[in-house]
Design a binder for these strands. Structure first.
Length: 430
RNA sequence: GGAGACGUGGCCGAGUGGUUGAAGGCGCUCCCCUGCUAAGGGAGUAGACGGUUUGUCCCGUCUCGAGGGUUCGAAUCCCUUCGUCUCCGCCA
């Protein structure tokens, strides 16, 4: 959420930053609502002040036994009540209007984020790893011989419909090993604190990180009003909602391995083959909470922690900085990491690391004090995948595939696979 | 799910209609004293919003889990709701 005072102070600057994200100017509308709101505040507060004075004097008069004055002042204050209520209702309306409009405006991008309309305008910043030369035509993961028994899409469709998969046997175990490996790596090497958050959250929690109110159709809601998290960024970032943290607690670095749930409402027909895009998937997520001055460096650090997973698994990737048109709602700068998928002959997103400056912090009222007694300031929040586990499984399978239908597994997974290094063509670990 | 109790400032803890944004204690900040440490003395110490201003000075409004109500006036009374604790039931 944007600071209305900042918009008032520099409406043109605000509009031009919106323009970079392809959004029409809003400052004049916002300024008008805000002026109405301020007028309403002034009106209400003046009336309340008068009422309070009369009421206080009434109390004094009664204490002094001056019944005539008491009755007169009581009448005065009583008559004001209706008027105050009317002005209060008006104020509430203006505040609602402003808030609901502000809640639907995306974050603005940092100056150095490249302008652009869509993913074609993203800018590659680095590549890592050698893409294998295949002596045969590499297959997509769901076509691999070793996955015939280990990935059952028909079974999943029978149980749950489209965009689900049942992993079985060694494939399920490799998937689990990947999750364990990532979580252990983020905690023991990369300095994140492991947490195990709820995957069902309240509406306010979803508003805090920006999924609501605008993107309700992208997530699932339960019959008692809870929401299923589309990413544990939602749960973990909100650990600091409505808190005033001591400055020495920052940076806060959190990680979790959870299920994530997405309706994929806008993705009908896309990525329907295989398990690239599912309604339910697992992800190890990183969240950082920092001071404003540290957040950009933290973004680089977080990106490196995500890249570290791919490098340790020996998976080629490239890192891109998203252009203004491709960025998510709450981000002010985003680094996507795309892993090489030889079966698709392309790089596909496997991690997205974003800094949201104080955009989420304002929504969830997350603040800190630099020193004891100092004024509270909004924190900066960051989130990033470290990594998407299902997609990482795909990458491991496609990059390690052999002509005979088996897969050579990354050595780094050995500790979680009893030292096994191969998924055989008939779906066994060896 | 049933019965009961409770939710006050960073923490503990007073406060059952009136000048209480809130006693007292602890903690914290600053100052004084003490050769160090410990102890002692003094002052200060919630947040949001608005006015004013970019001076953290002043004025006003709101907030005692949240929302609503009664009243001239509510932390104090009533209703709803959320959460915590105890007992019972059920259950992974």
């Amino acid at each position: 959420m944007h600071d209305i005072r900042k918009i008032v102070h520099d409406p043109k600057g605000f509009d031009s930053s919106l323009e970079r994200r392809g959004i029409d100017p809003l400052s004049s509308v916002l300024l008008e609502i805000d002026q109405n709101r301020r007028n309403a505040i002034a009106a209400v507060e003046q009336l309340r002040a008068e009422r309070n004075t009369a009421s206080r004097s009434a109390g004094e008069a009664r204490a002094n036994g001056d019944h005539e004055t008491f009755e007169r002042l009581r009448g005065t204050a009583a008559r004001m009540r209706e008027e105050i209520a009317r002005f209060e209702a008006n104020l509430q309306e203006e505040e609602q209007r402003l808030r609901s409009l502000l809640l639907e405006i995306p974050n603005t991008a940092y100056d150095d984020v490249p302008d652009g309309a869509d993913e074609d305008d993203n800018v590659e910043v680095r590549r890592w790893g050698d893409r294998r030369e295949f002596s045969f035509a590499p297959k997509e993961h769901h076509e691999l011989e070793c996955c015939r028994a280990g990935m059952d899409f028909e079974l999943a469709a029978r149980l749950s419909g489209a965009r689900f998969v049942v992993l079985i046997g060694a494939v399920a175990r490799i998937h689990r090993a990947l999750g364990q490996f990532m979580l252990d790596r983020q905690t023991t090497r990369n300095g994140y604190t492991e947490t195990n958050p709820p995957v069902l959250v309240l509406e306010d929690t979803m508003i805090g990180t920006g999924q609501l109110p605008k993107f309700a159709e992208d997530s699932y809601q339960t019959n008692d009003g809870h929401w299923l998290i589309p990413t544990s960024e939602v749960s973990m970032t909100n650990y600091v909602s409505n808190q005033i943290l001591d400055g020495d607690r920052l940076p806060l670095r959190l990680t979790a391995h959870t299920l994530c749930f997405r309706s994929e409402a806008g993705a009908a027909g896309r990525d329907t083959a295989g398990m690239l895009r599912q309604h339910q998937f697992e992800k190890v997520e990183m969240v950082s909470v920092t001071t404003p001055e540290d957040s950009l460096a933290e973004l680089d650090r977080m990106t490196a922690c995500a890249e570290d997973i791919l490098e340790t698994l020996e998976l080629p990737y490239r890192t891109v900085i998203l252009c203004t048109g491709d960025m998510g709602f709450g981000a002010s700068r985003t680094h996507d990491i795309e892993v090489w998928l030889p079966g698709q002959n392309t790089y596909r997103e496997i991690s997205s690391c974003s800094v949201c400056d104080d955009f989420q912090a304002r929504r969830m009222n997350a603040r800190f004090r630099r020193t004891p007694g100092a004024r509270p300031e909004f924190v900066h929040t960051l989130n990033g995948s470290g990594l998407a586990i299902g997609r990482c499984l795909i990458a491991v399978l496609e990059n390690g595939q052999q002509e005979d239908g088996s897969v050579r597994l990354p050595a780094a997974l050995g500790d979680w696979l009893d030292g096994c290094s191969t998924l055989t063509a008939d779906g066994q670990l060896a």
